[in-house]
Simulated assay, not measured.
Amino acid sequence: MGESGRSVTITEIAREAGVSVPTVSRVVNGRGDVAAATRERVEELLRRHDYRRPQRPRTVARAGLLDLVFDDLDSPWAVEIIRGVEDVAHAAGIGTVVSAVHRRTTSARRWLGNLRTRASDGVVLVASSLAPALARELLEATVPVVVVDPTGGPVEGAPSVGATNWAGGLSATEHLVRLGHRRVAHVSGPTGMLCSRARLGGYRAGLESAGLVVDPGLVREGDFYQESGLREGTALLALPDPPTAVFAASDQIALGVYEAVRRAGLRVPEDVSVVGFDDLTLAAWASPPLTTVHQPLVQMGALAARTVLAVGAGEEPANPRVELATTLVVRDSTAPPRAG
């Protein structure tokens, strides 16, 4: 027990020992993949604090299940992540349990409670709004966790997989500038999300490197969905000096901008060029086909699944944070601005 009879957590033990939560978890569970000096330091702290090790049935070496958890499942990019995770799970001969916590603490707590009652080989967490307290509880459940964060930030102590969002925003903006656009707008994702801020940062850098001033009036906050693209696109096109190009932080926002352009009696790309982000399947089937930044979502899901299984097998990730490269895919939604 800790001070004042309070039970100490493995997060606190990890902080005091100067190691990661997964390392303490491996010591607690008696695994051998921890350096002797580290194990001795952690064990000494566990004894000092009278830490009570969880009584978990250990008769089954492997649960045969991988948990995949989303904030929501109503976005096409979720399907891409699922494909990548399931490819790896299938090859490993295990099943995948897909859950959605719907951005609500009660749903997340209910899912976590369910996880505690059964075995799992690991959790791939694709969630941006898991409360810090719940994130700590998840790590303390001694189940390997890897975070995929196209929409959110890392969970302390867990490896994470993402994409080069800043570089993607830069390449999208530089493409539009090279075409001759000088009034380039950006409809971002929620600015509380790290990936949104990184794409916005790339957009700003693309303009500034070309000697262009970032006009705050051309930067609008969306939510990754079509409705925000329509709303913010309509507002941008109603400006006295509207943009000739829009970089949208997702393909879905971009399609909303398409509709705003259509309702304004204009055309893509003759009047307004549009670039998206994700390269979902629907991007190639849009009219016109959408120029976009390819985010390797399937590969991100697959890497996360391989990583969480490796951690569960006792391997230490070579890098706690891995970002896969984004690439610009040029299609028919971008063109030089109309003369005059």
Rank of each mutant, 00 (worst) to 15 (best):
V19L: 05
E3C: 06
G222N: 06
G30V: 04
R109D: 14
V79Q: 01
T117G: 12
A185Y: 05
L139A: 11
A245D: 14
L237Q: 06
V272R: 08
R231W: 04
E3A: 14
P132W: 04
E174M: 05
T9N: 07
V60C: 06
L68N: 00
A78C: 15
G192K: 01
D251G: 12
H175Q: 08
D279V: 05
R182L: 03
W77Y: 15
L170A: 09
G312C: 07
S273E: 10
D215H: 07
A264F: 03
F277R: 05
I82S: 00
N29Q: 14
P336R: 13
L328G: 10
E40R: 14
S25T: 11
W77A: 08
G122T: 03
T307A: 00
L73S: 01
L138Y: 07
G192N: 08
A92L: 02
S7G: 00
A158L: 05
V8Y: 01
D74T: 10
G2F: 07
T244M: 05
V257C: 10
V97F: 14
A63V: 00
A310Y: 04
A210V: 07
P154Q: 12
D271M: 02
V143E: 00
V293Q: 09
V268M: 10
E232D: 15
N319Q: 15
R182T: 07
L66I: 01
D33G: 02
R116N: 09
V98A: 02
A264N: 11
V329M: 13
A135Q: 15
A313Y: 03
A131M: 02
L255W: 05
A254V: 10
L239G: 07
T96Q: 00
T11P: 02
H294C: 06
L138T: 08
N165E: 15
V42M: 14
L218I: 05
G5N: 05
A248F: 05
A37M: 13
E315N: 08
A14F: 15
L134M: 10
D71V: 01
H90C: 02
E12N: 06
V187N: 11
Q295H: 05
T327R: 14
V146H: 02
T59W: 08
V97I: 15
E43D: 12
R338T: 13
T334K: 04
W111D: 01
S129F: 02
A61K: 14
V146D: 07
T334F: 09
V293A: 13
A172E: 06
V219H: 09
G256W: 06
W111R: 02
V19G: 12
A302Q: 07
T307I: 00
G211K: 06
V261G: 10
V126A: 04
A167P: 03
S171E: 15
N29R: 14
T9H: 10
L200I: 09
P216K: 12
P190I: 01
L303D: 04
E221I: 08
R178D: 15
A260C: 13
